[in-house]
Amino acid sequence: MALCTLEAVTKDYAMGEVRVPALQGVSVQIEAGEFTAFAGPSGSGKTTLLNLVGLLDVPTTGTVRMEGQDVKALSGHALGRLRARRIGFIFQSFNLIPVLTAFENVELALRLAGEHGPDNGDRVRKALVDVGLERFMDRRPSQMSGGQQQRVAIARALVKRPALVIADEPTANLDSKNGEAILEDMRRMNVEHGATFIFSTHDKMVIEHASRVVHIMDGKVLQDERRTPRPLPPRPPANGTPGDGTAA
């Protein structure tokens, strides 16, 4: 069974009295373990597609299934519960909660997922160690660089072991060196933990890391391309994070 399926999905937005089609009959199937990029220029509909896959929005017509379940039949509360437990999010602007430390931001994902086990602390620490932030757990976002903040966001998305991680242009606000490092982190999570990633981008460097690229244009799928991603370099030393060391 596919992890996520979109069948003949359309999505219209109302702009005054005019209805603007953002997606026009898109059908895509995401399998578990994929590292998929939705690629396309600004306004192509890739963010709208991510919103639907991430259960942040519902289609105007068509069907979105998450692990076989038609999401249109779910209430807002049930969608929220599903997002909390099965989907992790990584945003272009990191979207960390500024009044919480790195540790608390990651722990937040577990608490919102309803996980209050005694091993939560260990899970949070491990998630932060996996992204090389063992020395930054007590720092607030304002005390970290952009790259470090995005790593916290990755740890936050993955700590609850979600079925799917949605990343909306995760490297757009980072310099190329940090962007590359973030992508390698995401790739490692994909390879080592089997986490399924879907991300949107229009950056060629980012697309090189994807094993599948769905090209979107004017709200339609232009091409669905399976490809061999760029080889993953060896993991860097445990106590180093590229471009970090001082707060941004």
Partner: peptide
């Protein structure tokens, strides 16, 4: 944006 993030995360 924070409210949106919390909602996305399931609040």
């Amino acid at each position: 944006r924070e409210v949106g993030t919390l909602r996305a995360m399931g609040m």
